[in-house]
Amino acid sequence: MMDALDKLAAKNAQHDSAVKAERLIILLVSLGLLPFYIDIGYAVWTDLTFPERHFYLLISGVSCFFFSGLLMAFGELMRMRQWLKWVLFLISLTWFSTFWIFGNHDPIAFMPLIPAFILIKLKL
């Protein structure tokens, strides 16, 4: 009887860790799309017309997903403390939001990818 309970406890612990990992991934992706959410608000606030708004949001969503996806992938490969990864990710998202949405400086917005790539090359 105890053997079956031990197996069930082990399965429950494994399931709990899988659920925790899924929640972390959902949180990361939601946070990664934060510049896109800001951009949606900005497009509504500036009153863009129908065709401009959809094209603008499509370009913004694709670039935000590209930027955040690369940073998240680089973050997984970096050997740093978890809290430091989160702080660097939030700083990079703030940088991207500032220069992509409000500053219209597209090349400058993607600059945090360069030091992230260099860190990956040095750490690997």
Rank of each mutant, 00 (worst) to 15 (best):
M2W: 00
D3Q: 10
A4D: 03
L5E: 00
K7T: 09
A10K: 06
A10F: 04
K11F: 03
K11W: 07
A13K: 00
H15V: 10
D16T: 09
S17A: 13
A18M: 13
I25E: 08
I26A: 09
V29C: 03
V29S: 01
L33F: 10
L34R: 11
Y37D: 00
D39E: 12
I40T: 02
G41S: 14
V44E: 14
V44R: 07
W45E: 05
W45A: 03
D47K: 12
D47T: 13
D47W: 04
H54K: 06
L57Q: 10
S60W: 05
G61I: 01
V62C: 06
S63A: 04
C64W: 07
C64E: 08
F65E: 04
F65K: 04
F66A: 10
F67L: 15
F67P: 01
S68A: 02
G69I: 03
G69D: 09
G69W: 04
L70T: 01
L70D: 03
L71Y: 00
M72V: 05
F74A: 15
G75Y: 02
L77D: 07
L77R: 14
M80D: 07
R81G: 14
Q82P: 15
L84N: 14
V87S: 15
V87D: 08
F89H: 09
L90C: 14
L90I: 11
S92T: 11
L93D: 08
L93Y: 05
W95T: 03
S97P: 02
S97E: 06
S97F: 07
S97D: 05
T98S: 10
I101W: 03
I101M: 13
N104F: 13
H105T: 04
H105G: 02
D106Q: 06
D106S: 05
I108A: 06
I108H: 00
A109G: 03
F110C: 09
M111Q: 04
L113M: 11
I114W: 05
P115T: 15
F117G: 15
L119M: 12
I120K: 00
L122R: 13
